[in-house]
């Protein structure tokens, strides 16, 4: 009986939204608006000489070594004013929303624990260099669009 209940709950959740690792889509979107959108813009295309574009590219970091770690340690993520749980949720939502096509088939959603240990070592000025290095490793060359 309990299993049926759990299954029912799971199926309800899945019917509402199907983003792995995102418990509350509305909350994730709100956190995006409050903590990211101001600089990255509503469609994640970024701005010239400002926040880099993520649209159609951000999930490619998951395809290269150290890329997954970079996504947590990059200053905007690591220093965001929210709990580890909500930050993990926001990361998963961002990857799915802005770059679903590059999301690896075997992608495991970020968890609060992983985010907590990663954001404990935030990147500072080396973030831009690390980003360019990682982008250079993307299969087929780095994506267009950029920022600094």
């Amino acid at each position: 009986m309990r299993i049926v209940g759990v299954l029912l709950l799971l199926s309800t959740a899945a019917a509402a939204e199907e983003i792995p690792g995102v418990a509350n889509v509305q909350r994730a979107k709100m956190n995006w608006m409050l903590s990211c959108q101001g600089c990255h813009q509503a469609d994640a295309t970024g701005s010239a000489n400002g926040a880099p574009s993520m649209a159609g590219e951000v999930a490619r970091f998951l395809t290269v070594e150290d890329g997954r770690e970079y996504l947590i340690r990059v200053p905007g993520v690591a220093n965001a004013g929210m709990s580890d749980e909500q930050l993990a949720e926001l990361l998963n939502w961002t990857l799915e929303t802005f770059d679903k096509e590059h999301l690896p088939a075997d992608f495991t959603p970020f968890t609060a624990g992983e985010v907590a240990s990663g954001r404990a070592q935030p990147l500072v000025s080396e973030a831009a260099v690390m980003r360019e290095t990682l982008r250079g490793k993307f299969a087929g060359g780095k994506a267009s669009g950029g920022g600094n």
């Binding site: 509350n24 979107k29 709100m30 956190n31 409050l34 004013g81 929210m82 709990s83």
Partner: peptide, 12 residues
């Protein structure tokens, strides 16, 4: 106005 915030207070 760009959206509606949730009631939950979970932001540090």
């Amino acid at each position: 106005i760009i959206g509606v915030a949730l009631k939950e207070e979970g932001r540090g």
